[in-house]
């Protein structure tokens, strides 16, 4: 059976098609003001590119902040459940998940194949992709360049502001003092990583931890998290799709087992 998962996130929308236990295609794009039209267009484009007719798709499940706006979905599930299902499908041995997205970050504890506990930070931009996006701009680099720059640093700058707006002015004053871009980038990443690590430790995550969400594409962030947590972290081939994947898995019913070769 073919099912679809739509993750209407705060920053990006992800659409994924799943046939039984195989991902047949996915798309990621910035979330538009009109959640619904944007998601529907992405879904139609994905179907066309995979040469699949709408009628061939069984159930469509939505997740993410805009999940209830996706009127063409059969059901919506929370992103906590969706990410857990998606990550366990890719890495069945995982026991903890760190998700740092555009506008929130969360830590999920997994036991016996299901969510056992979770913690979310979404009261402000601190500890989210937004923090990196805004502060990268102050460094005049893109968020994608931030990780590479950070890896080249030997002395990460000390960024003390938790508030994104204050961190932005802190970056400007660090530059005025002649601190290198590399050290500031590393400082920014350390700052957000430390916030996420506190959440992870609060939830008791020790090993077999997966890292997903847009910020998991940042190599500097992965390296810092691994250092702070003292373990190797599992990162999916495409860290942004685990929510959509989990929704598509849920749409298959409760009987989907992970692929044998994972």
């Amino acid at each position: 059976m073919i099912t679809a998962g739509i993750d209407a996130g705060a920053a990006t929308t992800k659409v994924l098609l799943l046939q039984d236990r195989e991902i047949i295609g996915y798309r990621i794009a910035g979330t538009a003001f009109d959640f619904l039209t944007a998601a529907r267009n992405m879904f139609d484009e994905l179907l066309a590119s995979c040469d699949i007719g709408r009628e061939e798709v069984g159930k469509v499940y939505a997740t993410g902040y805009g999940r209830n706006a996706i009127s063409f979905a059969d059901k919506s599930i929370s992103e906590i459940t969706a990410h857990a299902k998606g990550v366990l499908f890719l890495f069945p041995e995982v026991r903890g998940i760190i998700d740092v997205g555009g506008q929130d970050s969360k830590v999920i504890v997994v036991e016996d194949g299901r969510v056992a506990d979770f913690l979310m930070n979404d009261k402000c931009a601190a500890g989210t992709g937004k923090f990196l996006e805004v502060t990268a701009k102050a460094l005049e680099v893109t968020i994608n360049d931030l990780g590479g720059l950070a890896l080249a640093s030997n002395h990460p700058a000390d960024i003390t502001s938790m508030c994104t707006v204050f961190a932005e002015s802190e970056v400007i004053s660090l530059r005025a003092r002649g601190i290198t871009k590399e050290d500031i980038a590393a400082g920014l990443i350390t700052s957000i990583a430390q916030r996420v690590v506190v959440m992870a430790k609060r939830m008791g995550l020790k090993k077999r931890i997966a890292f997903v969400g847009g910020v998991a594409k940042n190599a500097g962030m992965i390296a810092t998290l691994e250092k702070e947590l003292g373990v190797t972290i599992y990162v999916p081939f495409e860290p942004q799709i685990t929510g959509a994947l989990g929704a598509a898995i849920a749409a298959q019913g409760e009987h989907v087992t992970p692929p044998i070769d994972s």
């Binding site: 902040y65 599930i77 929370s78 992103e79 906590i80 459940t81 299901r114 969510v115 056992a116 506990d117 979770f118 979310m120 979404d122 009261k123």
Partner: peptide, 28 residues
Amino acid sequence: IPLLAIESDYGDSDMEQIGIRVDAFLEM
């Protein structure tokens, strides 16, 4: 027995955030 902690004021600005936690907790 699982516990979900919610800290909130009297404003409506966090209704969606609380909603997501409650959804996830009920699913859990």
